[in-house]
Design a protein around this nucleic acid. Structure first.
Length: 257
DNA sequence: AATTGTCGCAACCGCGAATTC
DNA sequence: CGAATTCGCGGTTGCGACAAT
C-alpha cells in the first residue's frame, strides 16, 4: 500500500476553519454532494485537503449533528457500548443519533473514562507524573470523578445561549426534520460559528451572490437562517466563490486559475 | 491584576480497509 | 490480480477558555 499524499502538499491551509470556508463547504456539498473528498476542495475552491474537508463536514457541519452537552442517557449508553465494543467510536456513534465519533471519543477521554475506571486513570496519571511532576498533584487533587458537573451538567451551559447577530435574536430554536429524531433545542454559540456580521454584509449582499440553495430550512440551522436571510439568488459560475475569497481577503496567495 | 494550571474540543496524523484502475 | 488511490477510523495534539492562586 502506498500512502496517498494529502495535507503535506504545500500551500494547503491547516488549522481552524473560518466561517467563510465553512460556508463554501456547506454550499458545495449541498449542491454537489461529496462523492469524492479528494477532488472536493479543488472543485469547491477551498485551500484544504480532502481529508480536512471530510473531517470538518462529518464532525461539525453536517446538518444532523446534535450539539450541546451529553444527556445522562447518552453517557450511560456510551459507557455500555464501550464496554461491549471497546474503542470502536464509529460503531458507538452509529447508535447515538446526531453524535459524532470524535465527539464521543472526546467525552469518553475527558469524562466517562475517569468515571468508569477511576483507579486506572489515577494510575496512569501517576505514571505520567514521573515525567511531569506538576500533573501528579493536579491529577489527584482534582479528580474529575468528583466533579459535580458530571451529574449536573456544565456550568458553561448557563451562559452559552446563542446570540445571532444576523437575525438579531438572542436564542434560536429549531425543530429538525431529519431522520435522527433530534428534538427541538436551543443552540449554543458552540453549535454554529458566530460569524462576524460584516462578513455576511459584505459577502452575502453582493449581487448574484448565492446560488439557489435553501439555507433557511432545518438543514443549516441558525447559520443557514443567517445566510438565507440575506436572500439567495442565482449564479452558477466560480466568480462568486472567487469574489467571496477576495472579499474575505483569503485568496491573495492563489495562483491564477 | 497577573500568572499559572486545568479542561474541553477541534483538528491533525498515521494506519489499515475498501475501492478503483 | 496487483498496484494505486481514496476513505474512514482511532490516537494524539494544540490551543483557547476558564478557574485557581
Amino acid at each position: 500500500m502506498v500512502r496517498a499524499p494529502c495535507c503535506e502538499k504545500m500551500g494547503l491551509k491547516k488549522g481552524p476553519w473560518t466561517p467563510e470556508e465553512d460556508q463554501i463547504l456547506i454550499a458545495y456539498i449541498q449542491r454537489y454532494g461529496h462523492g469524492n473528498w479528494r477532488a472536493l476542495p479543488k472543485q469547491a475552491g477551498l485551500l484544504r485537503c480532502g481529508k480536512s474537508c471530510r473531517l470538518r463536514w462529518v464532525n461539525y457541519l453536517r446538518p444532523d449533528i446534535k450539539r450541546g452537552n451529553f444527556t445522562q442517557e447518552e453517557e450511560e449508553t456510551i459507557i455500555n457500548l464501550h464496554e461491549k465494543l471497546g474503542n470502536r467510536w464509529s460503531a458507538i456513534a452509529a447508535r447515538l443519533p446526531g453524535r459524532t465519533d470524535n465527539e464521543i471519543k472526546n467525552v469518553w477521554h475527558t469524562h466517562l473514562k475517569k468515571r468508569v475506571k477511576p483507579n486506572q486513570v489515577a494510575q496512569e496519571a501517576k505514571k505520567e507524573s514521573k515525567h511531569t511532576p506538576m500533573q501528579l498533584s493536579s491529577g489527584f487533587m482534582h479528580p474529575i470523578l468528583d466533579d459535580p458537573r458530571l451529574l449536573a451538567g456544565s456550568p458553561d451551559q448557563a451562559h452559552s445561549d446563542f446570540s445571532c447577530t444576523a437575525t438579531d435574536s438572542s436564542t434560536i430554536s429549531r425543530e429538525t426534520t431529519n431522520n435522527v429524531g433530534v428534538k427541538e433545542e436551543s443552540f449554543s454559540s458552540k453549535e454554529f460559528p458566530v460569524i462576524d456580521e460584516s462578513f455576511w454584509l459584505e459577502t452575502l449582499s453582493m449581487d448574484n451572490c448565492v446560488e439557489q440553495i435553501d439555507f433557511t430550512g432545518p438543514t443549516y440551522g441558525p447559520l443557514g437562517e443567517a445566510f438565507g436571510s440575506f436572500g439567495a439568488s442565482n449564479n452558477d459560475d466560480m466568480d462568486f466563490w472567487l469574489r467571496v475569497f477576495v472579499e474575505a481577503g483569503d485568496l491573495l496567495a492563489l495562483p491564477p486559475i
